[in-house]
Design a protein around this nucleic acid. Structure first.
Lengths: 333, 333
DNA sequence: AAAAGGCTTTAAAACGCTTGCATTTGTTTT
DNA sequence: AAAACAAATGCAAGCGTTTTAAAGCCTTTT
């Protein structure tokens, strides 16, 4: 015999009050006489009643859960953001439906649709590219959306990032200041605005500032993976570049090790500044110099912003840039 | 004016059929005349109808979402499992509510309760310890639960793991075979059965097999973190141990770098075998020898098992051990 | 041509909760 | 002590689906 699940109705009966009253005490509504509240609370405790969030969601049209679209949890950059997101979500009594997209437009769309079907109260999107399909879905749905560590070049969607242009510019300038004439720029897919627009721009600005020519041969477009980093070293070496700014830490550590295995000495033979300051940067030898980004905070702030949006609060500025920095460790002079 | 959300009722009206019929076509029930199905499908398409999963959940008592309790997404070991979980969840049309617990009993309980309140169809629990509180909650709820990469010494709860005893025994034996007389055993909290019971046991068995004495001084209990690894090197060095089996990759890489920074040479001065074969093992220099575990698969199989449980299928064996191995890379001779 | 059956389809009752409105009870005012 | 008002509680209509029992509609069978 199935153990009956006990409902608000049972509590009401046992406490000799109406469902409405039970609902009020469960939801902390102040319009309940203390004595009544106590009585109801006792019954709730005795019956071990647990409100059904699904029913609640249907009745109130709020699910207190938000959807999080992430390229890959296994990537430390994104999982760091995710951790920030989850922590503040928890703080505000939300839960998170986490879905990996592999940055695949098809999957993203698919996932977005199930999230909306599940009536999430909001969505946090991570991913370097926002396909036009996604964009139009975003526009169409009235569910609030915030981008975390992902840019919307139109600035129509709320987002939390650092100033990638300035950060890369500063990183490249640092390398130039160290005497490097040929600084390679190694990053992911250039179709992604964060790379092709922002980072590349910062790179060019730094060169321009000191009158160095822009050389396409020094721009390396590859994928964000350890293997890709190892694999690309020979190509970089062939250009006589003496330094590189790299767009991803795994990629950078791959490059570092690839070069090291080829007997390059850091930082004397070659310098590297990577981009995310994830814990990987401290795990390599030498430790990697990096643009610093408050990864956890980007996630946290994004989620906080989302709570405001979900709450229909007025937002002064929905394109948030958090401070970045540069740490010099073992891969720069 | 709010854009009215359109419901199954609207579709029914427009298609001049009953809600029940619409429901059937939406759910792929075969008892619908092809012509009717077509008509309904057209209306669905025209109205851009999207079934409300919350209402569905209430009516059907199934939410097609499972809860995943994870110590920390940021930890590559767990995020690898999580990725496996999410992929097969998606495959079976489930979504995942991901919640970080920090292995904190209080939080775990809290999270478990919200997950149950949200009526998840099943739960996957990761975490090295199952508090008695959690155990009794598990027992009380009729929601299926599977442990992933986490042992239940009572074997009452379904779980997916490798044979930690045998794996550690083999790792230690390997080190002994390489000529090491003093092999340190470095791992996390010994109160956790996976460490104090299983791994330690494997360690002892390996020693016993060749008649080496068990020396408590060679057992190091610390936390799973990079810093802890760096910090513990001096202590290990002081014991004249010449090798170590380490319970976690981040910890191991910390130890490796700590030792390296102290001018220890691998593998000549010291050998290390770590435990999880996460991608970190390939990122260190030298690369780390490791027990291999099919991390992704542990998650995937756990989720697959959970689907069976949720489906009330008969399970032959609910304590699954996946194959492990040993890869020797740069930290062993 | 009536009876039997197999498909389709419908009506309406859940599912467990929130919430606006009405009602009751209790407290002040006058 | 009646009137006025405020606080506490109850009623009942949803919320958008699924699902079961019943009804309709055809085609076969006899």
């Amino acid at each position: 015999m199935e153990k009956q699940t006990i409902t608000i109705y049972d509590v009401a009966r046992e406490a000799s009050v109406s469902m409405a009253t039970v609902s009020r005490v469960v939801n902390g509504n102040p319009n309940v006489k203390p004595a009544t509240r106590k009585k109801v609370l006792e019954v709730i405790d005795r019956l071990d009643y647990r409100p059904n969030a699904v029913a609640r969601g249907l009745a109130s049209k709020k699910t207190t859960t938000v959807g999080v679209i992430i390229p890959d949890v296994t990537n430390i950059y994104f999982s760091s953001l995710a951790r920030g997101i989850d922590d503040v979500a928890t703080m505000y009594k939300y839960n998170i439906i986490l879905a990996n997209s592999d940055e695949n437009g098809q999957k993203e769309l698919q996932v977005l649709n199930t999230l909306l079907a599940k009536q999430v109260d909001g969505i946090i999107f991570m991913g370097n590219q926002i396909s036009t399909n996604m964009r139009s879905e975003f526009a169409r749905s009235k569910t609030p959306i915030v981008l975390a560590g992902s840019v919307d070049s139109d600035e129509e969607i709320a987002s939390v990032n650092i100033d990638y242009i300035a950060a890369v510019e500063e990183a490249v300038s640092t390398l130039i200041r160290h005497g490097n004439k040929k600084v390679a720029f190694v990053t992911g897919n250039m179709d992604q605005p964060i790379n092709g627009l922002y980072r590349l721009n910062g790179y060019k600005k730094a060169l321009a500032k000191v009158g160095l020519p822009f050389d396409e041969k020094l721009v390396f477009e590859t994928e964000y993976s350890y293997k890709a980093g190892e694999a690309i070293w020979p190509e970089i070496k062939a250009t006589d570049a003496t330094a590189a700014v790299v767009g991803d830490d795994e990629l950078a550590i791959g490059l570092l090790n690839g070069a090291g295995d080829d007997n390059a000495k850091f930082p004397d033979d070659f310098e590297i500044i990577t981009s995310n300051d994830s814990k990987l940067t401290e795990m390599s030898r030498p430790k990697m110099s990096s643009i610093t980004q408050p990864l956890y905070d980007i996630g946290a702030v994004a989620m906080r912003l989302l709570t405001k949006l979900m709450n229909k609060e007025e937002i002064e500025n929905q394109t948030i840039l958090l401070p970045y920095g540069i740490v010099e460790r073992g891969t720069t002079k």
